[in-house]
Simulated scan of single mutants.
Amino acid sequence: MLHATEPRKLKVPAGKSTLVLDDITEVASKLQDFDQHEQVWLGRDAERGLTAIAAIHNTALGPGLGGTRVWPHESFEAALTDALRLSRGMTYKSAVAGMPFGGAKAVIVADAKTDKTPELLSAYADMLAALEGQFYTGEDVGLTVADADFLRERTPNVTGTTKGGSGNPSPVTAHGVFLGIKAALKQQRGPGDLVGVRIAVQGLGSVGWALCEELHGEGAKLIVADIDAQRVERAASEFGATPVATDAIIAAEADVFAPCALGGVVSEATIPTLKAAIVAGAANNPLARHEDARRLMERGILYAPDYVINAGGLINVAAELAPGGYDRAATMTKVAAIPVTLSAIFERAQAQGRPTNDVAAEIAMERIEKAKARPA
């Protein structure tokens, strides 16, 4: 068990803030999911109830950009592992999408329904302000657009806001996933529409719901699960979706399994139960382990790498930081390229007999190494 009781203190925000900010990179390096991360920060504020981890994985392409997740992890080690895995995924996501940003992610260890107070968010804003230049963040699981607005009033390195930003990135993420599912179906079946295609959507949050709207609009048959029973009932009413239990959706009789909740659901234990021929969804890190993509391949199941198919939200918020500011039309043109990128990955993986996530990671690293080789 890891403990963060005595990390080396490197910097404390100026002023009267009660925040303590520590470098815990050495602590993080002892975990299996540490992957040459450049820096890992722990922010603590006992008075305002904050415990937050910001993991900066790789900034070869630019400053770290990634959302902030609010989740009541069962242990410090679990929260740190989550931050490490998510930040690495952001590096790959940005590189494959051609964005001039590196990979970073933050986790606030709290229950978003009961612990997320203005005081806690104010403490987190102090932490973000101290990390300005290293890390830009925005909405994620447990952190709403309203929260992003609150943070943006207190620190400049927040994206996806309604005031001066591009707003909620979830519909853009969902649209990219929608296009990616169609690309995966085309790879498996050839050209065709979505009418009658059975798609099991796990998670009906902002992205999952927006995805269901698009899929339903083109005639897909939806199977849905969520921990919120009211959302499931609403999906059944509005989309004619078939509800199933949260622990049964991965084994549903479907053509596509679309994980849109938390990660780690596709594992050595659950892969044998999959009936879908495609795994393609919005969740970050849906695979419990990297090698699970090979297990999917060996079963003839096509996997759309998460950081490729769900890059729409990143593309959207990154556009806010572009010279000249946010351009909606240019952003959606970049999102429309997601299926093109996926198709190239699918073809390369098939030709080489390799898992799709290996090919996607290889493409990401090629771009990162190229950036490192450029003269300073």
Rank of each mutant, 00 (worst) to 15 (best):
T5H: 15
P7D: 03
K11P: 01
P13I: 09
A14F: 09
T18S: 13
T18C: 04
L19N: 03
L19T: 04
D22C: 15
D23E: 09
E26L: 13
V27T: 10
K30Q: 14
K30F: 08
L31K: 12
F34D: 02
F34G: 02
V40W: 03
L42H: 12
R44T: 15
A46G: 03
E47K: 15
E47S: 14
E47G: 14
E47L: 15
T51P: 00
I53C: 05
H57Q: 10
H57S: 08
N58R: 07
N58P: 05
N58L: 02
T59K: 09
P63S: 13
G66D: 12
T68N: 01
R69G: 00
P72N: 08
E77M: 07
D82C: 00
L86G: 03
M90T: 02
T91K: 00
T91E: 01
T91Y: 04
Y92D: 09
Y92C: 00
Y92I: 10
K93F: 10
S94A: 15
G98F: 01
M99Q: 15
P100R: 04
F101R: 09
K105H: 06
D111V: 04
D115M: 02
E119K: 08
L120N: 07
L121F: 09
A125I: 13
D126Q: 04
G133Y: 10
F135D: 01
G142Q: 01
A146D: 15
D147Q: 01
A148K: 02
R152I: 05
E153N: 11
E153C: 10
T155Q: 08
N157R: 02
P169A: 07
T173N: 03
H175Y: 15
G176L: 02
Q187R: 11
R189W: 14
G190P: 07
D193G: 15
D193R: 12
V197G: 02
I199G: 04
Q202V: 02
G205W: 07
S206I: 01
C212Y: 09
L215Q: 03
L215W: 08
G217W: 08
A220R: 11
A225H: 08
D226E: 02
D226H: 02
R231Q: 14
F239R: 11
F239W: 13
F239G: 03
A241S: 09
V244Q: 11
I250Q: 14
A252F: 07
F257A: 03
G263N: 12
E268C: 07
L274I: 12
I278L: 14
A283C: 09
N284F: 05
N285I: 10
A288Q: 11
R289T: 12
E291K: 14
L296M: 08
R299D: 06
L302W: 08
Y303W: 10
A304V: 05
I309G: 00
A311Y: 04
A311H: 13
I315W: 08
N316I: 07
E320Y: 06
P323E: 13
T333W: 12
K334F: 02
S343H: 13
N357I: 13
E362Q: 13
I363L: 12
A364Y: 06
R367I: 06
R367D: 07
A371C: 01
R374L: 11
P375I: 15
P375M: 09
